[in-house]
Amino acid sequence: TETRTFDSEEEAKKAQKEAEKQGRTVTITRRDDRWEVRFD
């Protein structure tokens, strides 16, 4: 599991799309003013 933090939802969604192309499961969580993206 890898976790990355982004400043914008746009960036988080971009990372999510990339990871899903690779067949990974992605979870996006809102953390205050940041977006946390978890790759499984």
Rank of each mutant, 00 (worst) to 15 (best):
Q16K: 12
G23L: 03
R38L: 09
R34M: 13
K14I: 13
E2V: 14
T25K: 13
T29W: 04
D33K: 05
D33Q: 07
E36I: 12
R34Q: 12
R31Y: 08
A19L: 15
Q22S: 11
V26W: 00
R31H: 09
R4D: 03
K21R: 13
R34G: 14
R24K: 12
R24S: 06
R38K: 12
E36L: 07
K14N: 12
E2I: 14
K13E: 08
K17A: 14
A19D: 03
F39N: 04
E18A: 10
T3I: 15
E2T: 13
T5R: 06
E2K: 11
F39G: 04
D33Y: 03
T3W: 13
D33P: 02
T29P: 00
R34K: 15
Q16N: 02
E18G: 03
T27K: 07
T3L: 13
G23C: 07
T3Q: 07
Q22A: 13
K17Y: 14
R34F: 13
K17V: 14
E9A: 04
T1Y: 15
T3N: 06
T1F: 15
W35F: 05
V26T: 09
Q22H: 12
Q22F: 10
E10M: 08
F6R: 00
S8G: 03
A15I: 09
D7P: 08
E20P: 01
I28H: 00
A12P: 00
E36G: 01
T3S: 08
E2Y: 14
K21E: 14
S8V: 04
R38M: 09
E11F: 03
T29D: 03
R24L: 14
G23Y: 04
A19R: 02
K21F: 09
E9L: 15
V26G: 08
R30G: 03
T1M: 13
R31P: 02
R4Y: 13
V37N: 01
Q22D: 11
W35T: 01
Q16S: 09
E11L: 06
T27C: 12
R4N: 05
D33V: 03
D40K: 06
E20M: 13
T25V: 13
I28C: 07
T5W: 15
K14M: 14
D7G: 09
K17R: 13
G23W: 03
S8L: 05
A19F: 13
F6T: 01
D7E: 10
I28S: 01
E10F: 09
D32V: 06
E20T: 08
Q16V: 14
A12R: 00
V26Y: 02
G23K: 03
E2G: 10
V37R: 00
R34T: 09
E18F: 06
R24G: 04
R34L: 13
E18V: 08
E9D: 03
K21T: 10
S8E: 03
R34Y: 14
T5Y: 15
D32Q: 12
R31Q: 08
E10G: 06
K17P: 01
T1W: 15
D40S: 13
A15W: 15
R24I: 14
E11Q: 08
E20R: 07
K14L: 14
W35G: 00
T29L: 08
R38P: 01
E11D: 11
S8Y: 03
F39H: 04
S8I: 04
Q22T: 10
E2W: 14
A12K: 00
K14H: 13
I28L: 05
T3V: 15
D33A: 04
T27W: 04
D7Q: 08
F39R: 02
D7V: 07
D33N: 13
E11A: 09
E10Q: 09
E9K: 03
K13Y: 15
K21G: 13
A19S: 04
V37P: 01
K17W: 14
A12G: 01
F39W: 11
Q16L: 11
V26Q: 00
R30Q: 10
R4A: 08
R24V: 11
V26R: 00
I28Y: 00
E11T: 03
E2A: 10
E36D: 05
A15T: 05
W35I: 02
K17E: 14
R24N: 05
A19H: 05
D33H: 07
T3K: 07
T29A: 06
E9T: 01
S8M: 03
A15D: 02
K21V: 09
V37L: 10
F6S: 00
R38I: 12
T29I: 14
E20N: 08
K21S: 14
I28K: 01
E36T: 03
K13I: 15
T27A: 05
R30Y: 10
E9G: 02
R24W: 14
T25S: 11
R38A: 10
V37I: 08
T27I: 11
E2M: 11
K17T: 11
E18K: 06
R31D: 04
R31G: 03
R31V: 15
T25R: 15
E36P: 00
R38D: 06
E11R: 03
E18N: 07
A19Q: 05
R38T: 14
K14V: 11
S8T: 15
Q16C: 12
K14C: 15
T5D: 05
K14G: 07
R4I: 13
K21I: 10
E18M: 10
R24Y: 15
S8H: 05
T3H: 08
T5M: 15
R24T: 06
K17F: 13
E36F: 07
T25G: 06
G23S: 03
Q22K: 09
I28A: 01
W35H: 01
V26S: 12
S8W: 02
I28G: 00
D7N: 09
F6P: 00
W35K: 00
D32K: 12
F6Q: 00
E10V: 08
T5N: 06
R30I: 07
A19I: 07
A15L: 09
D33W: 02
Q16I: 12
R34I: 13
E36H: 05
F39M: 12
D40Y: 10
K14E: 13
K13C: 13
V26E: 00
V26H: 00
E20L: 14
D40H: 12
K17L: 14
K14T: 11
R24E: 04
D40G: 11
V37D: 01
A15N: 03
F39Q: 05
R34H: 13
T3G: 05
I28M: 04
Q22E: 13
E11Y: 03
D40I: 13
Q16H: 05
R38N: 09
D33C: 07
F39E: 07
G23P: 01
K13S: 07
T27H: 08
K13D: 05
T5F: 15
S8K: 05
A12T: 02
R4K: 11
R38F: 06
D7M: 10
A12D: 00
E20S: 07
R31T: 08
R4P: 02
K14P: 00
A19M: 12
E11I: 03
E11N: 04
D33M: 04
F39A: 06
E18D: 11
K13A: 08
K17G: 09
E10D: 09
T1C: 10
Q16E: 07
K13Q: 12
V26L: 02
A12L: 03
I28Q: 01
R24P: 01
K14A: 15
R4F: 13
G23H: 05
S8Q: 04
W35M: 01
F39S: 07
R31K: 13
Q22C: 14
E9P: 04
I28D: 00
Q22I: 10
A12Q: 00
K14F: 12
V26A: 15
V37W: 00
E10S: 06
D33R: 04
R38W: 05
K13N: 08
D7L: 11
K21P: 02
R4W: 15
A12Y: 02
K17D: 11
E9H: 06
W35D: 01
T25P: 06
T3A: 09
T29G: 05
K17M: 14
A15Y: 15
Q16W: 08
V26K: 00
K13P: 00
E11M: 07
D32W: 04
R24F: 15
E20D: 04
E36W: 04
K14R: 12
D40F: 10
V37A: 04
G23F: 04
A12W: 01
T1P: 12
Q16T: 06
R30K: 13
T5V: 15
R30F: 15
K21H: 10
K13M: 14
T25L: 10
W35P: 01
